[in-house]
């Protein structure tokens, strides 16, 4: 089964929300916490549903998201 992982660079994220808007699986959300620039950064809230499409990283204006895709073994 194809899975994804999103690494959020909290200090790069400016909380614009374009990734949340672009995600077809709703796996991202605002963290409710703030980085040193005062931005409410995004968190990878729902890893189980991520398929690694990369849409969030493609629309991210700040290179704050690095997306990986992998095959998970033993899951139908």
């Amino acid at each position: 089964m194809l899975r994804g992982q999103v690494d959020v660079d909290r200090e790069r994220c400016k909380g614009c929300g374009l990734c949340i808007n672009a995600c077809p699986k709703d796996v991202l959300d605002f963290s409710g916490e703030f980085n040193s620039d005062g931005y409410n950064y995004v968190e990878f809230a729902d890893p189980d549903d991520c398929v690694g499409c990369g849409f969030c990283g493609i629309v991210c204006p700040d290179m704050a998201l690095t997306v990986y895709r992998f095959e998970e073994e033993g899951v139908a």
């Binding site: 890893p47 997306v67 990986y68 895709r69 095959e71 998970e72 073994e73």
Partner: peptide, 16 residues
């Protein structure tokens, strides 16, 4: 949770 699962052929889709 995602990093703890066994995975192979992890490919970077997008990043810096």
């Amino acid at each position: 949770k995602a990093t703890s699962v066994k995975k192979k052929d992890m490919t970077k889709v997008v990043g810096k």
